[in-house]
Amino acid sequence: MALDKDLFLFDGDCRFCARSVAWLSARTDGSVTFRAWQHVDTDALGVSAAALEQKAVLVATDGRRFDGHLAYGECLRRSPRRDVNLLGRLILEEPTREVSRWVYGWASKNRHRLGGQAARSAAG
């Protein structure tokens, strides 16, 4: 599937995820489209629903994929704002990359405690 813009996929049934993506979207330059994975043909993108239930994924227009903290870091790195761009670079580069991976993993596992799961709608 060819993309016009990078595509950030997140869990649309998770309130914490939706709030995080709203924050992220407000800080990017418009080069990224944000969609709940439940409303996208994940098979056409080559990303499994099982993987997306665990981590956000950024599918780049060139076919590269970034998941979890790397997806957030790549989006923030695209920001025209220097402070936001720096935050993205800190997420992506050593030695803070490992800290970012740990923080993302903890938040992902505990998202239900952080405003986590919303009630699933009948429409899905």
Rank of each mutant, 00 (worst) to 15 (best):
V84C: 05
V103C: 10
R77G: 11
L86Y: 09
R78I: 07
R101M: 09
R89A: 10
T96G: 08
E98W: 08
L90H: 03
E93V: 11
T96A: 10
E94R: 15
A107Y: 06
P95V: 06
R82E: 07
R81Y: 00
T96M: 09
R101Y: 01
L86A: 13
G105D: 02
V99C: 02
R101S: 12
V84P: 01
R78Y: 08
V99G: 08
A107C: 13
I91P: 02
Y104A: 08
R82Q: 10
L86Q: 03
V99P: 08
R89G: 11
D83Y: 13
V99A: 14
L92G: 01
R82W: 02
L76D: 00
G88I: 06
V84H: 03
T96K: 06
E93Q: 09
L86I: 07
E94L: 15
R89T: 09
E94P: 15
R97D: 05
R97C: 09
W102D: 10
G105A: 12
V103W: 05
R97P: 03
C75E: 01
R101L: 12
S100K: 05
E93K: 09
V103Y: 01
I91V: 14
R101V: 00
S79H: 08
L76A: 12
R101E: 09
R77M: 07
D83V: 11
E98H: 14
R81P: 07
L76Y: 00
W106A: 14
L76G: 01
L76V: 05
I91C: 15
L86S: 05
L76P: 05
I91D: 02
R101Q: 11
L76S: 03
T96C: 02
W106T: 12
P80E: 09
E98I: 07
S100W: 08
L86R: 08
S79Q: 06
L90F: 13
G105E: 11
L76N: 03
L87P: 02
R77L: 14
R82F: 10
S100D: 08
L87K: 04
C75T: 04
V84S: 04
W106P: 07
S100G: 15
